[in-house]
Design a protein around this nucleic acid. Structure first.
Lengths: 138, 138
DNA sequence: CCAGAGTTGATAATGGTTCTCATTAGCGTT
DNA sequence: AACGCTAATGAGAACCATTATCAACTCTGG
C-alpha cells in the first residue's frame, strides 16, 4: 500500500493539464480553491512534487524565484520554448544540444552532467499585440 | 547625482570578483562580515541587484531557489558550466547553441528570443572526493 | 466492518529577499 | 572647508514561497 488514490491528487493533475503553460503552486492552489474544493496548499505542493518525481510534470525556477510546474506530454528528457508574455509553452527536442552539453562537460573534466536549456521569447500573437500597443502609444 | 560611490558597493564588487564561481547574496554577506566590515545584508542585495542591472554581473536561480550572482569577466553573452558541489564555474561559448536557439524559436513563430543554457555537473576534484567517500562508507 | 498506514489540511516554522525609516555620508555648491 | 540636499546605509520587520508538524481522516486489504 505504497500510494493511494485521492481526489485531491486527481484534481491537481487535472488542473495542471488544463493550464496552457507553466503555473506556480500558488496559482494552482488558488484556482482549485475557486472551484469550491477545500484543498490545502500543502497538499498541492505534495501532489506537484509527486508528479514531478514521477516524471509526469517538470518544474523550473521562474526568474522571480517561484517554482513553476507543467504537465509533461512528452515523456523523457526535453526542453521548453516559453512565451514570456502569455506563458504558452512548446516542448522541443534538442538532441544536438544534449550531445553538445555532454561533450562540453567532459571537455572540462566534468562528470554527471545535467543541463538547463530553455528559450524565452514572444509567441506570434503576443508579438503582434505588443506591436499594436506600441503603435497606439506613438 | 543619480549614483554615488560608496566603499560598500566597492567591497561587494571586489568580493564578487574574488569568488571562484557563483555565490549567493547570503554567502557574500557572510564573508564580508568576516572581513570585519559592518556591511548590511540589505546593502549587499542592493549592490548585487545594481551590478546585475548594469551588466557587470549575471544572476541565475539555483535549483534550491536561491539567487546566485557572478562577476562577468567575459563581456557579452555566454554560458556557464557549474560544479554542483563546490560551485566552480567555467564560462563557455556556445555559438552552435546560440544559432540553434534562434532557429528553433523562429521555427515556432517566436521572436525576441533569449535563452538559458547552463550545465551542472561535478568537477574532477569533487567527483574524486565523492568517490572516496563512497568507498569509505562501504 | 476493522485496523493500520498513507493523506490531508490548518498552522507554525523556515529561509531567502525586500521594505521601512531614521541615520549617515557622497558630492556639487558656496 | 563648511553646507545642504538627497542617495545610500543598516537593523530589523515585513513578505512570500516552501516545508515541517501533527492530529484528524480515509483509502484499502483482510
Amino acid at each position: 500500500m505504497a500510494q493511494r488514490n485521492t481526489w485531491q491528487r486527481e484534481r491537481v493533475r487535472e488542473a495542471l493539464a488544463d493550464a496552457r503553460g507553466f503555473v506556480s503552486a500558488q496559482t494552482l492552489h488558488a484556482s482549485l480553491r475557486d472551484d469550491n474544493t477545500g484543498i490545502g496548499l500543502a497538499t498541492v505542493y505534495r501532489a506537484l512534487a509527486g508528479l514531478a518525481a514521477a516524471g509526469d510534470a517538470d518544474s523550473l525556477q521562474s526568474p522571480e524565484g517561484e517554482a513553476l510546474y507543467r504537465a509533461c506530454t512528452t515523456q523523457g528528457h526535453h526542453h521548453h520554448l516559453i512565451c514570456r508574455s502569455c506563458g504558452l509553452t512548446v516542448e522541443i527536442e534538442a538532441k544536438d544540444v544534449e550531445q553538445w552539453a555532454h561533450r562540453t562537460a567532459a571537455l572540462h573534466g566534468f562528470t554527471d552532467a545535467a543541463h538547463v536549456v530553455d528559450i524565452f521569447g514572444l509567441c506570434t500573437p503576443c508579438a503582434n499585440k505588443r506591436e499594436a500597443e506600441r503603435a497606439a502609444t506613438a
